[in-house]
Simulated assay, not measured.
Amino acid sequence: MERGAPGTLYVFRGNYGLPSVDPKCLQLIFLLRIHAKHNIALKTCRFCTYPQLPYLNSNEKIYYTLQGITNAVHKMVLDGCDKTFSTLDKSRILAYKHLTHNVFSDTFDLHFWGYDRNNQHLIKQYGEGKHFPFRVIFARRMNRHVQRIVEDLTERDTLAEVLKVGNEAVDSYLEDLSKLLKDKKYLFGDKPSSLDALVCGYLAPIVILEFPNKILQNIVNNHKKIVKYVKMFLQEFGEEYEGVIPSEIPQKVESEKAPLGTVVIAGFIAVSVMVCYGLIHDIIKVN
């Protein structure tokens, strides 16, 4: 944990200018950058093979669920998010957030992981920066993890049937968001809300990353006003870096270097695994 920081948020690594390639991680990063009153340390796990990030280490407690992390973040920022909005707007923000999760969550997961080409492409993105053999172990665990996600979401219907309904709902909801946005900078005026963090967390990877299967990208790209809004949001809150997330984002912060002891241990494990692999497959022979 960074000195003076009340917590450390561990996320999947960023790429292509995104602070993370994962929608759930992005939602929290954007939330912190908009509302944080205290410094929060942001870290990527280069030696970790755990496929279920984000997680938050704060005040000697570890939060693994997205809801648990979000609740903890709200406590860190004292009065919570959106406190300057009117009571009516707070209610509308809450309703839109609930609807956003309902419309986006399952459909986006299926587009990410349900198509094999997207699946393999994204697992490489998620594992970017991990050192061998951690990258290989992570890919295997991530594959099993996303297979369970897809199986759970397509338990009763085929992938095509589920996505047909989901795609129509996403398209319709993006049209509703366009009407809410109108010509404003943010969804509720001239200042960002937790709804902006949530919506852009979902949409930023779709707008920025290049997917082999572009069905969802094409749906989103048809809504030009939303695409422009997401790109403008990223210019303000989407800088890619590791370090401490302050109330004001610095222009450039150097990535944290791994401690020497960690590098030595990782190197020893890597060499050991390679030697074992060579012995098992007769690449290395012992007389």
Rank of each mutant, 00 (worst) to 15 (best):
47 F>T: 13
138 F>W: 00
53 L>R: 14
71 N>F: 13
32 L>F: 02
215 I>K: 14
5 A>I: 05
4 G>K: 06
60 E>I: 08
170 V>C: 06
56 L>K: 03
74 H>Q: 14
281 H>D: 05
68 G>F: 10
41 A>W: 02
180 L>V: 14
269 I>T: 02
117 R>L: 14
230 V>D: 03
258 A>E: 13
115 Y>C: 03
184 K>E: 07
226 I>C: 05
236 E>N: 01
215 I>Y: 12
188 F>N: 02
83 K>R: 15
203 L>V: 09
174 L>N: 12
202 Y>T: 00
177 L>S: 09
26 L>T: 10
229 Y>C: 07
144 R>W: 07
110 L>F: 07
131 H>A: 12
251 Q>W: 04
264 V>C: 05
173 Y>T: 09
92 R>V: 09
23 P>E: 00
38 H>E: 14
88 L>Y: 08
119 N>L: 10
142 M>A: 11
240 E>L: 03
173 Y>A: 09
145 H>V: 00
102 N>T: 15
194 S>H: 05
197 A>I: 10
164 K>E: 12
126 Y>S: 05
236 E>Q: 08
105 S>T: 12
9 L>A: 02
115 Y>D: 10
167 N>R: 03
100 T>K: 12
210 E>T: 08
196 D>N: 02
184 K>I: 00
124 K>I: 00
221 N>V: 01
285 K>V: 04
175 E>L: 10
13 R>T: 12
223 H>I: 00
77 V>I: 12
120 Q>H: 13
215 I>T: 15
253 V>T: 15
286 V>F: 12
283 I>K: 09
219 I>V: 03
197 A>W: 11
